[in-house]
């Protein structure tokens, strides 16, 4: 094979969809548009899910009961991203963290800012920093990022999933 010979071609797979969020996620996102974080609770094991997807994946039942959670929580885990990711406007280094809202049994991924990178740690208390209300839509991006509250850390054992 000669060196300059192109030995591949680029496939042009490109498909258009009208994606839907799911009934449970739609309810959740419509509340997010009002600045509220509304979780769903499992009727069997009472686990609280935020964001909800409509079922408890441990019990295989629908999570109909809804409850509003505060926008405060703790860092369950984190990573400091040093590599720029194509298409991502955030300039590294920055913190991506799994955030467990107070009262929730699962965590979700979000950013932590307004922090010295050396200070980030598991168990750190954080609170949501919301965008200006006029910019709110049906997206978790209404929360710009989370920032430390300065309260005492929580004991990481609280992150253990309830039996």
């Amino acid at each position: 094979m000669s060196e300059e010979k192109k030995d591949f071609f680029v496939s042009d797979i490109s498909l258009s969809y009208q994606y839907t969020a799911g009934n449970a996620t739609t309810r959740f996102l419509n509340k997010v548009a009002e600045g509220k974080l509304v979780a769903q609770k499992c009727p069997k094991c009472s686990a609280v899910y935020v964001p909800p997807r409509g079922s408890c994946p441990r019990c295989g039942v629908a999570t109909e009961e809804e409850l509003e959670l505060p926008d405060t929580g703790a860092v369950e885990s984190f990573t400091i991203v040093h590599i720029p990711i194509p298409g991502n406007p955030i300039v590294p280094p920055y913190v991506s963290a799994m955030i467990r809202l107070d009262g929730a049994d699962i965590s979700f991924l979000h950013l932590i800012q307004e922090i010295d990178l050396a200070d980030i740690r598991i168990g750190m208390r954080v609170q949501a920093v919301w965008k200006d209300k006029s910019d709110w839509g049906t997206t978790l991006e209404n929360i710009k990022w989370f920032k430390p509250t300065g309260e005492d850390d929580v004991d990481p054992s609280v992150f253990k999933f309830k039996e």
Binding site: T20, A21, N23, A24, T26, G54, G60
Partner: peptide
Amino acid sequence: AKAANEVELIM
């Protein structure tokens, strides 16, 4: 199926 996601269809 409008908004229904896979979980909501299967359950």
